[in-house]
Nucleic acid binder design. Sequence first.
DNA 1: GCAGACTTGGAAAACGTTTTCCTGGAGGTC
DNA 2: GACCTCCAGGAAAACGTTTTCCAAGTCTGC
Lengths: 330, 330
Amino acid sequence: MVTLEDVARHAGVSLATASRVLNGSTRQVGASLRAKVELSASELGYRTNVAAQTLARGASNVIGLVVHDLIDPYFAAIADGAMRVAEGQGLMVMIGTTHRDPSREIAYVSTLNAQRVRAVLLVGSRVADPEPTRRLREELDRYRETGGRVACVGQDLLGTDTVVPDNRAGAAALARALAGLGHRNFAVLAGPDWLLSPRDRVTGFVGALRELGLPEPLVLYGSFDREGGYAAATQVTGVTCVFAVTDVMAVGALASFRDRGIRVPEDVSVAGFDDIFTLRDLVPALSTVRLPLPDMGVRAVELAMDTTGDGRAEVVAGEVILRESTRGLD
Amino acid sequence: MVTLEDVARHAGVSLATASRVLNGSTRQVGASLRAKVELSASELGYRTNVAAQTLARGASNVIGLVVHDLIDPYFAAIADGAMRVAEGQGLMVMIGTTHRDPSREIAYVSTLNAQRVRAVLLVGSRVADPEPTRRLREELDRYRETGGRVACVGQDLLGTDTVVPDNRAGAAALARALAGLGHRNFAVLAGPDWLLSPRDRVTGFVGALRELGLPEPLVLYGSFDREGGYAAATQVTGVTCVFAVTDVMAVGALASFRDRGIRVPEDVSVAGFDDIFTLRDLVPALSTVRLPLPDMGVRAVELAMDTTGDGRAEVVAGEVILRESTRGLD
DNA sequence: GCAGACTTGGAAAACGTTTTCCTGGAGGTC
DNA sequence: GACCTCCAGGAAAACGTTTTCCAAGTCTGC
């Protein structure tokens, strides 16, 4: 293992000079010494020991990213956006997946704190239970006290910079659009009640229907994935339109209807939420509420790295997009 | 920032004892001192400084994962498998995405070497050009000389432990299965020629057709994604069956045919490769060659962490799965 | 030529751990 | 009771950088 000292000795200069040449200091180094050091470094195959560098500098070049599930294209899209900016700024990204377990989220923050990462990004819905949220916040505060930066994508519950998708307003707008097509009887395929994002979407959707004076929709709970959508959809009956709180759940619903011989959109309309890129070739094309997922990831990194503020909340609106999976009743 | 020394002083013990209590040593510490240290640590909110720990220990608890593209479900699936094992072994995962640029791959290996990660996983097709492969190998060798472990998923070209999907045999088996359905005139939607995986799949497919004495297929090149599949498919004419070297490209082909009013499978059969989980609700359901993606990620981590061997190649076979997108000609 | 202001290079003190020795005492054996 | 072995605890030397001082030039302006 070749160290900076080896390089310095080989080049006949001091440790300080070698350090200044190789690891970007503000100080100038004379051209001839600089050349000697660079030559030695490449001859010996020197690689900076980042652990030592981090220790000496007191700051690392890593950011931590905590998501629920990498296979879920929702998180993959946000992570992709985040990673692109990070790369642009010379940062490495350390990823943890919680599989929706709040205690794993807390454990990851603790681990990332130990790693002294520059910033941690918490992506994904908060939970309804205040207890894990309180403990998470405690852990985050400990991290932030020592200069750590935090940004979230989700609900603004942690006192950090947050990118907040406007789930409620998006779902409400979708409800109005669907009502505009003439639908009056709805079913909502809701995610688990203890997750805030699906809950907000349900609230927004139901609230809008109420304001329009339409009948209460049938609300069916299921897990927050394709299977949950499938299972919930099997219980749907007597409605003309189904809102799944997630595109991924909507895919399950579509499959369920297909298996039952129910045609979409002829027999029932289906809409989702998120506008997942990978699903844009679905037949019929899914009506949904578009969220600018990669941008949200980008924004989160930018907020985290911008030390001029804190606790900012940036609301991002969803855009209703009606495609083939919903049709008008006339 | 509270250090181990603070904890030791607060507990009235030496640094050594505090270290032994808090960071898992083999040495015993008396119960009363142990309790004091643990109490102090939690009262002060101590968090290990991993950089210092890594420096002192000379080994980190991080593994590096380099993939082409996180949004591509192929890589997401492998990464997911890898992350699950890593978590189980208390390892953090650092991810880099190359977007298929070989030089970025090399740069990442260098960076991960600097981080002194325990192991590097290189996931994704190698390229045909030997030059970047040579430089990558050089960089890997430098890393391995100092004790770094490497595992790849893809072609066995780097002298490392490798999980090798049998692209050629899988594609050949698919060709035979499709010929068995009565197809004689094929088109192949090939990925870029400079990537080895798509190339192997084309070779295997074409070779099998030749062995069967069938006419040469029409080979159309396109980019390695949905758009590439779409574009290539627009040029398809006069065949009864299309093989896209990737499920993702097959999705593009399906969309293209739909836009042109060509029915699948009535007018033309379509098959892909990979069996991407997220795409299993496609209509029509895609015939494909299944690769056990998450398992491949798991295996790669296991190989990397198993220091009893090196340079091992583990071939994983693909399984032909015929679904609705292909039909027999009778 | 000379005082002052920059510049360039080096010595050495951090940074926060782990781990190797030491030391002293407790327990066992004859 | 003397000897040996074992074990818990501590002092201090790593680990590989960065960075703060210092010293010694080299300019600039007069």
